[in-house]
Amino acid sequence: MKWQGVFPAVTTKFTPHDELDLEAFKSNLEAQLEAGVSGIVLGGTLGEASTLEAEEKYALVRAAAGYVTGKVPVVINVAEQTTKAAIEAAQKAADNGASGLMMLPPMRYKADDKETVEFYKATAKSTELPIMIYNNPVDYKILVTLDMFESLAECENICAVKESTRDITNITRMINRFGDRFTILSGVDTLAMESIVMGAKGWVAGLVCAFPAETVAIYNLIQVGRIEEAREIYRWFMPLLELDIHPKLVQYIKLAEQETGLGTENVRAPRLTLAGDERAHVLQIIHAALANRPQLPDYKDLQA
Rank of each mutant, 00 (worst) to 15 (best):
Q4R: 14
Q4C: 11
G5R: 05
P8V: 07
T11F: 04
T11L: 08
F14T: 09
D21S: 10
F25S: 07
K26F: 00
S27A: 15
L29V: 01
E34S: 12
S38H: 10
V41L: 14
A54N: 06
E56N: 05
L60K: 02
V61K: 05
V61C: 03
A63H: 02
A63W: 02
A64C: 07
A65I: 03
G66P: 02
T69Y: 05
K71G: 01
I76G: 02
N77W: 00
A79P: 01
A79D: 02
Q81F: 04
A85S: 14
I87A: 01
E88H: 10
E88A: 13
A90L: 01
Q91E: 09
D95M: 04
N96C: 10
S99E: 04
M102L: 15
M102T: 03
M103Q: 02
M103V: 07
D112A: 06
D113C: 09
K114D: 12
E115K: 09
T116Q: 04
T116G: 15
V117C: 06
T127C: 04
L129M: 05
I131D: 12
I131Y: 11
I133E: 04
I133H: 07
Y134M: 10
N136T: 05
D139F: 11
Y140C: 11
I142W: 00
M148K: 03
F149L: 15
L152K: 06
C155R: 08
C159L: 02
K162H: 08
K162T: 07
E163V: 08
S164R: 08
S164G: 13
T165L: 12
T169N: 14
I171W: 09
R173G: 00
R173M: 12
R177K: 15
F178V: 03
R181A: 02
R181H: 12
F182D: 05
F182L: 05
L185D: 05
L185R: 08
L185C: 14
S186I: 11
G187H: 05
V188T: 13
D189E: 11
A192M: 14
A192S: 15
A192R: 05
M193N: 01
E194D: 14
E194F: 10
S195E: 07
V204S: 02
V204L: 13
V204K: 01
A205M: 06
A205E: 04
V208A: 11
A210S: 13
P212D: 04
A213T: 06
T215Y: 03
Y219P: 12
N220I: 00
N220K: 15
N220H: 11
V224C: 09
R226E: 14
R226F: 01
I227R: 03
E232W: 00
Y234E: 15
M238L: 15
M238I: 14
L241P: 00
L243I: 09
D244Y: 11
I245E: 10
P247E: 12
K248W: 06
Y252F: 15
E259K: 15
T260E: 07
T260A: 07
G261C: 05
T264P: 08
N266H: 15
V267F: 10
R268H: 10
T273M: 13
T273K: 14
T273A: 12
D277I: 06
A280E: 14
A280C: 00
I286W: 11
A289Y: 09
Y299A: 03
K300G: 02
K300H: 08
